[in-house]
Amino acid sequence: MNYISQFIIDFIDILNEMSPYLMLGFFFAGVLKVVFPQRFIDKYLGQKNSKSVLNASLIGIPLPLCSCGVIPTGISFYKSGATKGSLVSFLISTPQTGVDSILVTYSLLGLPFALLRPLIALVTGFFGGILANKLDDSSESIQVENIDSDCSSENKDTFRCDTKNMKKRSKLYTLFQYAFVEFLQDISKWLIIGLLLAAVISVLIPNDFFTSFIGNDIIGMFVILLTSIPLYICATASVPVAAVLMMKGLSPGAALVFLMAGPATNAATITVLSKVMGKKIMWTYLVSIISGAILFGILIDNFLPREWFDIGGLHKHMSAHEGHWELPDWLKCGSSISLALLIINGYIQKSICP
């Protein structure tokens, strides 16, 4: 019974810490949707050079797309004329972070991690895109037919429903409809899974698990990497899991490996990439993410002060790290209730218009 009550307490505490930043992140996602239309994004990815690769990474970083949602978007860019390097750069940078996950990272892991995530996403995306362009010696057109994956069917149903009922709407309506209905529907299931997983880890895994049973930061990185590559978890949902793992003794570098590899790779993404782009590009994608995750993990553990990544305050009350300004309880609870109601509304909307 103690496990159940502690699970509920930890789940609510993590949710309360995340919810205000999630709501703000969803709002910014809606702003991006209105301010940067699809034609603007398509325009800058078509040249086989470093500029297009950099553009793809810069465009992808703030976009709130998970590793499943990024597949049809990236392939759409490619069919419209984007190079393979631009596509790989976009596929690497986009799912690692987004405006919503950056804010949630700040809420649970602190400012250094919130700044490092988009920077590392930019560097690894750029490196992967340049490498893909160097290895690409083909000029054949892409063949995309019947591409599907476990995590894209929901988005297709939502798209059909939205298209069926599409009318001329104001930008304000589009902003809130996308932010708090469409986008929230896309990630709500994985967000719930991430929160549940974080609470389960918090209750079941003993404190100092990684320092006591693994005892080596490098080994910890590879253990996390092996479990992260096939796993599906979105950039936002990965944050509470990483925070709880750090509470159990996982090094900041290994936590970064999880934050990079978990959102950017999964079995569905790897399968679709191999089918559409070929094994050479698929391996370029994986090697870029894996090498980048390990390299930056080692740099963080060995060259940055550990106190930058101290989340002792989170351990005491699932709050942000020591010295971090506390949001008022009424705002946290109100945001959690609002988020829960919006998620419930999303499932009702799906049942009404499957």
Rank of each mutant, 00 (worst) to 15 (best):
Q185W: 14
F126W: 08
G128K: 00
L191R: 03
F126H: 01
I192E: 12
N165F: 14
V70L: 06
S67R: 05
L108C: 10
G69R: 03
F180D: 02
V104G: 07
F90C: 05
I71Q: 07
L63T: 03
I192H: 11
L111I: 12
S188P: 00
S141A: 10
I59F: 14
K79I: 09
S170L: 00
T124V: 14
D148A: 13
I75H: 01
E182V: 14
S80Y: 05
A114W: 00
C151N: 14
S80I: 03
G74K: 13
L91M: 15
I192M: 13
R169E: 15
S141V: 03
T73P: 02
S149N: 10
S89C: 07
T163Q: 12
E145D: 15
T158W: 11
S86G: 15
E140W: 09
D100T: 13
I75F: 15
G125L: 01
P112Y: 00
F176V: 10
F77T: 10
L131T: 06
F127Y: 11
N155W: 08
N133D: 15
V70D: 07
K189W: 09
K156A: 06
R117P: 00
V70Q: 07
G125Q: 08
E182D: 13
K84R: 15
T97W: 03
G110D: 08
R169A: 12
P118V: 05
S67F: 05
A179R: 04
Y173G: 00
D148V: 09
C161M: 09
F159G: 01
G81W: 03
S152I: 13
I102W: 03
K156C: 01
G129L: 08
P62Q: 07
G85M: 14
F113M: 15
D157K: 13
T105Y: 02
L87Q: 06
D137R: 15
L115T: 00
F159D: 04
D100L: 10
L109K: 02
D162Y: 03
D157Y: 05
